[in-house]
Nucleic acid binder design. Structure first.
Length: 469
DNA sequence: GTTACACCTAAGCACATATT
DNA sequence: AATATGTGCTTAGGTGTAAC
């Protein structure tokens, strides 16, 4: 394990500048080499037999009281190939140079560990998407999409599709599992992570083969049904599959209920259950319930270990969930619809209310405007009235004064007339006096008398005019 | 609705120890 | 010695759920 770390870190250090694409296959192949080298010597497929010796050995290893670690224990104790380890754990089997390098590794482990994990993931991606020509391609241990890579969910084993179980006693087990179109394939548990990874690789190859068969891909004569394709793929890998003690269950969700059928070791049974469940789902809730009830109540023969059976009441209660859930979903849909329409109604009402408010506001504004206009008119009117009154008063004043003036004028005119008349009389008197004096002057010619008379008349007239002005 | 897990429960086995 | 019972461990089967 330490060697692997050293190799990994060396490669990282040496090739940090190199492109990731170039680095990943090498790292991956080294990892697989290591894992191959550490493969458990005994390969006992099928049921695991616990001999007394095995168990004693296992217990010694478990409690760590005596004896050297077996390879298996080392793998179990160090399930993550690239996980941190204590410095002394590998000291007995490591060379001096390895030790120093291990120390170095440990020193930079914190820094590198996350990077290694990232690279491991990236390597998986690389192998899942791009093809590795090394012949050790592992299309299986992959995190194929960015979305999956970003997922917080992480396999405890460090390998996609291989789950890890740690028991209270500290023992660790691995199991590979893959789902293929509702069919869930699980291998037996193994104590060795690499064995489970191998199993998972085989399962993924199987899945790809099945999908190719269904799609009518390369080397396949036309599209096959899922069952045909699955059977054919299993036939091709019969030898590998026999080592894995595969068990099948159908994972399915319908009408809002997710469930899985009881596990079976019979592929044919699993395929049939799957096909019939899919068909029943198409037909509706009651058809699905009927068939599922049949499945649950059927005696189970193709199992390694029988789990609890279903009583009729339990099975009925379970299948009843479908109709209940279906009804609940229907109710939910209706409720949603109702809510939606209510929301729409509320929105409409709110809009109407806002509109009314706006109208009321506008009316209020208009009323205020009108009021202001009226006030202005009123004020203007009042001003006009005051003005008119003042004008009238002035008029009246004027009229009164003009009357006084007229009266005064009339009085003055009368006085003037009197004066004028008096003047005229005086002038006339003077003229008469002159005339009398002229008559006394008898020696004046007639013409001179005429001129004198005219002059006297003009003087009288001028005097009269002067009086008038 | 599907997939890929993590996690839990319990069946089944082997062994130790107590009882007959 | 035979049998019953308790304990420890492995692993099959099943459930829940996050992420998509």
């Amino acid at each position: 394990m330490a060697r692997l770390r050293v190799l990994a870190v060396q490669m990282l250090r040496n090739q940090r500048e190199a492109s990731l694409q170039a680095l990943l296959p090498q790292l991956r192949s080294r990892l697989l080499e290591f894992m191959q080298g550490y493969r458990k010597p005994e390969a006992s497929p099928g049921k695991v037999q616990h001999t007394t010796a095995d168990r004693r050995h296992s217990r010694k290893g478990m409690f760590g009281t005596e004896g050297a670690e077996t390879p298996q224990e080392r793998v179990v104790g160090d399930p993550m190939a690239l996980a941190p380890v204590s410095p002394c754990s590998d000291s007995s089997s490591s060379s001096a140079s390895d030790e120093s390098e291990t120390d170095e590794v440990l020193a930079i482990e914190n820094e590198e560990c996350s990077m290694l994990a990232a690279i491991e993931n990236a390597a998986d991606v690389d192998m899942g998407v791009g093809e590795d020509d090394s012949g050790e391609s592992d299309p299986d241990c992959k995190l194929p999409t960015a979305a999956t890579r970003a997922s917080k969910r992480q396999s405890g084993s460090g390998f996609r599709g291989v789950s890890r179980q740690v028991h209270a006693t500290g023992s660790v087990n691995y199991r590979a599992a893959v789902s293929v179109c509702h069919l869930w394939l699980k291998t037996r548990h193994t104590a060795s992570v690499e064995e489970s990874v191998d199993f998972h690789i085989i399962l993924i190859q199987l899945r790809e083969c099945v999908e190719q068969g269904v799609d009518g891909g390369d080397g396949v004569e036309g599209p096959l049904s899922f069952e045909q394709s699955f059977r054919a793929a299993c036939m091709q890998r019969q030898e590998d599959l026999s080592k894995m003690s595969l068990s099948f269950s159908v994972i399915f969700s319908a009408f809002g209920v997710t469930f899985n059928t009881p596990t079976t070791t019979s592929l044919e049974e699993a395929l049939e259950v799957r096909a019939r469940l899919l068909a029943a789902r198409e037909q509706g809730v009651s058809a699905l319930q009927a068939y599922l009830l049949e499945v649950l109540m059927a005696g189970r023969t193709n199992v390694r270990r029988r789990s609890r059976g279903w009583t009729l009441a339990e099975a009925q209660e379970f299948v009843g969930r479908f109709s209940a859930r279906s009804e609940a979903m229907q109710r939910k849909r209706e409720a949603m619809k109702q809510l939606k329409s209510e929301a729409l109604q509320r929105r409409k009402e709110a809009m109407e209310e806002r509109l009314q408010q706006r109208r009321a506001q506008r009316a209020l504004r208009d009323a205020r405007k009108l009021e202001r206009q009226q006030q202005r008119l009123q004020q203007r009117w009042q001003r006009v009235v005051r003005h008119a009154q003042r004008a009238l008063q002035q008029e009246q004043k004027l009229s009164a004064s003009s009357q006084q003036q007229a009266a005064a004028a009339a009085a003055a005119a009368a006085r003037a007339k009197v004066r004028e008349e008096a003047q005229a009389r005086r002038v006339a008197e003077r003229g008469r006096r002159k005339l009398r004096s002229w008559t006394s002057m008898k020696n004046l010619t007639f013409q001179e008398q005429q001129v004198a008379a005219e002059t006297a008349a003009e003087t009288a007239a001028a005097a009269s005019r002067n009086m008038c002005t």
